[in-house]
Design a protein around this nucleic acid. Structure first.
Length: 108
DNA sequence: TGCTTGACATAAT
DNA sequence: CATTATGCCAAGC
């Protein structure tokens, strides 16, 4: 069976590798998944993320260290709550210290 | 089959 | 650090 270019599933696999209490940017996930530069696809993949997936999508944030502004209100607060449960701390502007919480794939 | 939209990133200003 | 412009790929219509 040929490898199905299912980038989405590949992305989910990378996101699953994200340890608890750590976050990764879309670009980072894209690079690790072999989709360097296609960070948009990462976000799109998570959007297609089915329910019941073991993918900690809430650990995936944008390059600014902030939660991606979704279309539905209240969703950002939900993600922030999940991250706080992981032990992460947000700034007054609702941003995280990427320098401190950024997941190091090489350290895995 | 072709155009538009989309959980973004990076470079330039 | 914020904002603007451009690029990338896949899914939807």
């Amino acid at each position: 069976m040929k490898e199905r270019p299912r980038r989405n599933q590949r992305i989910w696999d990378v996101v699953r590798r994200i340890p608890r209490g750590r976050v990764a940017t879309y670009g980072q996930v894209a690079t690790i998944a072999g989709l360097a530069g296609q960070a948009r696809q990462v976000g799109y993949a998570l959007h297609d993320l089915p329910e019941g997936s073991d993918v900690p999508w809430h650990r995936v944030i944008n390059a600014r260290g902030e939660v991606s502004p979704r279309a539905e209100p209240g969703w950002d607060g939900f993600q922030r709550h999940l991250l706080e449960e992981e032990g992460l701390v947000f700034d007054d502007r609702g941003r995280l210290d990427l320098e401190r919480y950024r997941w190091d794939p090489d350290s895995e």
